[in-house]
C-alpha cells in the first residue's frame, strides 16, 4: 500500500489555497475589470506571470524571500513567529501566488462580459457596489467562478517546482503527491510511483470534465 499522507496533504493544501484564493481573486478581478488606472496593466501582467514563468523561478525567489537570513523572513519570524521555508504555511503562500492567474483570469473574463446596463440598473435601484457584486455580478458569472475554483484547486494539486523549492520534501509537512511521486521514482519504486501518478491523472481528467461540463452552452447563463 502507498503512504496516503501525501494525498491527504495535497488536498488539504489545495483546499486551503483555493478558499483563500477565492477571497483574494474576486476583489482583484473586480478591480481589474472596472479600474481605469494605468497601473492595472502592470497588475494584470504580475497576476499572469506564473502562467509563463518556470515554477522553479517563482519558487527560488520565494525561498530567498522566506529565508530567515533575509529581511522578510526574519521579520516574519521575529514579529509573528512564522517560518515559511519548508513549512505548510509557506506552501500555502507559494501556491496562492502560483495559482492566482487560474482563479483571477476566468472571473475577470466573466465580469468583462456582463453588460454595463445591468450594473447601472442595479445602481439606479439604490444598490451599492458590494450588493451589485454579490447579488448581480457573481451569480451571473457563476460558470466563470466555478471554472476558476476548479482550475485553481487542480493547479495547486499538480504543482511541483514551487513546492519543491519552498517546501522541500518533509513527510507530513510538505511532501505532497507530486513530490512523493518523484521520490518513489528516485528510489526505483515504480509500482508505488504509479499509484501516485494514476491518482493525479484520474483527478486531472475529472477536473477538466467538470470544467467543460459547467461551461457547456446549455448550462452557461445567457449573459456569460
Amino acid at each position: 500500500m502507498i503512504d496516503a499522507h501525501p494525498i491527504f496533504l495535497t488536498f488539504k493544501l489545495a483546499t486551503v489555497t483555493t478558499i483563500i484564493l477565492f477571497f483574494v481573486s474576486v476583489p482583484l478581478a473586480y478591480w481589474l475589470t472596472f479600474s481605469r488606472h494605468k497601473i492595472k496593466y502592470v497588475a494584470e501582467a504580475l497576476v499572469s506571470l506564473p502562467l509563463i514563468l518556470p515554477p522553479s523561478v517563482l519558487g527560488f525567489y520565494l525561498l530567498l524571500a522566506f529565508s530567515p537570513q533575509n529581511v522578510f523572513g526574519s521579520f516574519l519570524e521575529r514579529y509573528f513567529n512564522l517560518r515559511l521555508v519548508f513549512t505548510f504555511e509557506g506552501l500555502v503562500i507559494a501556491s496562492i501566488l502560483y495559482s492566482l492567474p487560474f482563479m483571477v483570469q476566468p472571473i475577470y473574463n466573466g465580469l468583462k462580459m456582463v453588460p454595463q446596463s445591468i450594473i447601472e440598473a442595479s445602481y439606479t435601484l439604490g444598490k451599492g457596489r458590494l450588493t451589485t457584486l454579490v447579488r448581480v455580478l457573481l451569480p451571473n458569472v457563476r460558470a466563470s467562478v466555478i471554472t476558476g475554483i476548479v482550475l485553481a484547486f487542480a493547479h495547486t494539486v499538480g504543482e511541483f517546482g514551487v513546492v519543491l523549492m519552498v517546501g522541500g520534501n518533509i513527510p507530513r509537512e510538505t511532501r505532497v503527491v507530486s513530490i512523493a511521486l518523484y521520490d518513489e521514482v528516485e528510489a526505483m519504486n515504480y509500482s508505488q510511483a504509479n499509484m501516485y501518478a494514476i491518482t493525479l491523472l484520474i483527478f486531472a481528467l475529472l477536473t477538466l470534465s467538470i470544467v467543460y461540463f459547467v461551461n457547456s452552452p446549455s448550462r452557461v447563463n445567457r449573459v456569460v
Partner: peptide, 20 residues
C-alpha cells in the same frame, strides 16, 4: 449625487433585467 440616492426610475434600451 450618486445614482443610488437620486430616486430615478430608468428603463434601459436593452431592459437590463437581471438574468439570474
Amino acid at each position: 449625487l450618486k445614482p443610488q440616492v437620486r430616486n430615478v426610475g430608468i428603463v434601459f434600451q436593452d431592459y437590463a433585467l437581471f438574468p439570474n
